[in-house]
Amino acid sequence: MSEVEPPFRPRVKIVEKQKYFQNIPKHTYLKGPFDKVTSVAIPIALAGTSLFLIGRGIYNMSLGIGKKE
């Protein structure tokens, strides 16, 4: 009566991936092929954009640009 469900992925593939990820000498959050984009590039882009907008806001406030009458 109790049927065994087939796994989502074959065990051989899972073991291959585990060996691959366990043997890489990099940090855990940089082990995948696209992890540099999500862990490094996106935060740097967000920080750069926010610094630019903060700088622009300070510049506009110091010169009185964009004030509402």
Rank of each mutant, 00 (worst) to 15 (best):
L46M: 12
L51G: 07
G57A: 08
V15I: 15
R11G: 13
G48L: 15
Q22S: 15
R9N: 04
N23C: 03
P6Q: 06
P33H: 12
T49H: 01
M1Y: 09
I65K: 11
M61Y: 11
R56L: 15
M1N: 08
G48C: 14
R11L: 13
V15A: 15
G48T: 13
T38I: 13
G64S: 01
N60Q: 08
I14F: 03
V4I: 14
T28D: 08
E69S: 14
K17N: 08
L63T: 14
F34S: 11
P33Y: 09
G66C: 05
R56P: 01
Y59D: 08
A47R: 06
I42D: 01
Y29H: 08
G55K: 05
Y59M: 07
I42K: 06
F52T: 07
K19M: 14
K26L: 00
L46C: 11
P6T: 06
K68V: 15
K19T: 11
A41E: 06
V15C: 05
G64Q: 02
I42M: 09
I65P: 00
N23A: 11
V37D: 01
Y29I: 07
I58H: 03
P43C: 04
T28F: 09
I42T: 09
L53K: 01
F34V: 11
K19L: 15
K31H: 01
R9I: 06
T38V: 14
N60F: 05
G66A: 10
I42P: 04
R11I: 07
E5P: 07
Y20F: 14
K13W: 07
K26G: 02
V40F: 12
N60C: 08
V15Q: 13
K13Y: 07
M1I: 09
V15M: 13
Q18F: 06
E69R: 11
T38Y: 15
R56Y: 13
S50P: 02
T49N: 06
T28A: 13
R11H: 08
I54M: 02
D35Q: 07
P25S: 02
Q18H: 08
K13D: 09
E3I: 14
P10Q: 05
I14K: 04
A47D: 00
K68R: 13
Q22D: 14
G57M: 05
